[in-house]
């Protein structure tokens, strides 16, 4: 019998520190598989954020640096400009990328920096204990929107993939989910395309990954997957928003 599925080489053997059912682990694995498949692990430098995935530096078996909250795209810019032959990715949550780091992500995308951004959208702040994120849905209850997100005073959830795909410097943007095997397979393809786009020097690529946070949503992992499909996907449609013709 042949092994047809195992942990990718670009992941260390350290067990993930994430809560049971949290999608970070799946996203980590998909990124690591892409690095393996393109054979770029040894020339990759990853930038981890502030938030639950601040520990990503432990789990990815490649060179890693931790950025300040929201600043990963600027740090990645510095790395990629100094070492253009390296493969550079950031791994950011929604508080990091879509709140405190909006300036950095918009301008890094707009400059067309040849990096890949893995953006985890789980509609909540995880590590600080379940506060409202810029991506929190209207009416969603969090620690800081205890009566539900009221768009009159709290604004509407930001659609990052749509917003950034209007920028000319962007080569590839897609939104995927991880709530069932079919989606996970598609997510894998999108992540591969994003890295392929970087490897071919096409410019900025980003994959927005709709993910669950069972702990802070107050749901079991299975219920959380259902909640994601029933609530997040209708507001955050899946699919590709920008593709260079050559990357397919």
């Amino acid at each position: 019998m042949k092994k047809v599925f195992e942990s990718p080489k670009s992941l260390t053997k350290d067990p993930f520190t994430y809560c049971p059912g949290c999608h970070h682990g799946i996203a980590h694995r998909l990124v690591a598989e892409a690095l393996d498949e393109f054979g770029v692990r040894e020339k990759t430098i990853g930038v981890c954020p502030v938030g639950c995935s601040v520990f990503a530096y432990v789990f990815f078996d490649c060179d890693m640096i931790c950025a300040a909250h929201g600043r990963a795209p600027a740090v990645a810019t510095g790395i990629k400009r100094a070492k253009p032959d390296s493969i550079v990715f950031t791994y950011q949550g929604d508080g990091d990328l879509a709140s405190i780091g909006t300036a950095e992500i918009v301008h890094t995308a707009n400059r067309g920096e040849n990096i890949t951004v893995i953006f985890i959208n789980n509609a909540i702040y995880g590590m600080t204990g379940g506060q409202m994120a810029p991506t929190t849905l209207v009416g969603q209850v969090t620690q800081t929107s205890p009566y539900g997100r009221d768009p009159k005073t709290m604004g509407y959830p930001i659609k990052v993939a749509e917003m950034l795909s209007t920028l000319k410097g962007v080569a590839y943007i897609s939104r995927v989910a991880l709530s069932k095997p079919a989606y996970i397979l598609k997510a894998k393809k999108a992540i591969r395309k994003a890295f392929q786009s970087q490897i071919e020097g096409k410019g900025f690529s980003l994959v927005e990954i709709l993910s669950t946070c069972p702990t802070n949503w107050g749901l079991s992992p299975i219920e959380a997957n259902k909640w994601l499909e029933e609530n997040m996907i209708p507001y955050y449609p899946l699919g590709e928003f920008k593709t260079p013709e050559e990357v397919s």
Binding site: K2, V4, P15, F16, H24, I26, K180, P181, I184, L185
Partner: peptide, 19 residues
Amino acid sequence: TGCTFCAITCPDVAIEVYK
């Protein structure tokens, strides 16, 4: 059947599949 769906869904990469 070795379809790997359990493994690709596992957030902790705790499953290996042989076929």
